[in-house]
Amino acid sequence: MSRFIVRRFLSVIPTLFIIVTLSFFLIRLAPGGPFSGEKKLPPEIMANIMRKYHMDEPLVKQYFRYMGDVLQFDLGPSYRYKDQTVNDLIGNAFPVSVMLGTMALGTALLLGTIVGITSALKQNKWQDYAAMSVAVLGISVPAFVVGPILMLIFALKLKWLPTSGWLSSRAGALTLIMPIITLMMPYFAYIARMSRGSLIEVMRSDYVRTARAKGLKESVVIRKHVLKGAMLPIVTYLGPAFSGIITGSVVVEQIFVIPGIGRIFVQSALNRDYTVIMGDVIVYSIILIAANFVVDILYGLLDPRISYK
């Protein structure tokens, strides 16, 4: 097991390296820079700025300098927010996004499996049809439609919930409700469909027939023999789901004005704030890789047929 973890961990390094390198050159090659948007600066000030950020050096040198810094967990200064480093910016925003993401994924997982199981047990009854139509709706409606419509109804018309903000604001935990619903919708829907399908398949499997032939009650059959096998595919889906949620949070943070890394990402992309974009890409990639890593290990723990040698 530990050998597997180490090997898996080592295989991550080249991926990360390639991601960082690719995005570094991609971004530098783009026309325009972080300072081109501002009103024309006098050339000597421009030169000063360039020198300060080492942008007058050859590209390759800049690359190695950047890589060296990154290895020491220093993501550099922000070009836009003059007095903040990328580490500060991301450090403040990261917990917010991770909290939003995990809560959304947790809710999606919980509700999705409950709805999926109910609808598999009521297969082809109205509950099933209703749940599955809702699920297709959940998959079809994009977050940037769900979010504003929820906001319109619950915040602006009914005034039950605050329109935006995050925990620290006066409304407290109420601020979480709409962002979480918006973010989890498609994943909830997908998990519901997936767990229904997988449950139905397992309920038809040979080993469940064996369990029934033993005289076990249907509830025991489901609990003891069906659920575990049926939930395994969901575990494999958690990796992609998490990465989707992370991307999705870019929009949700935008809509509900949440100070997370998604919002920083869009802002810095619009401002061409290179170092911040780069830092964000690195953080996102690490989150994704870590999520897939955890899922792999989880899968191995749940399925006795898999052994890590």
Partner: peptide, 17 residues
Amino acid sequence: LMYSLPYMLVVIIIMSM
């Protein structure tokens, strides 16, 4: 490799460039 990229983010970068 492409799968392990947060790919909408890459598109965002491309678009912003």
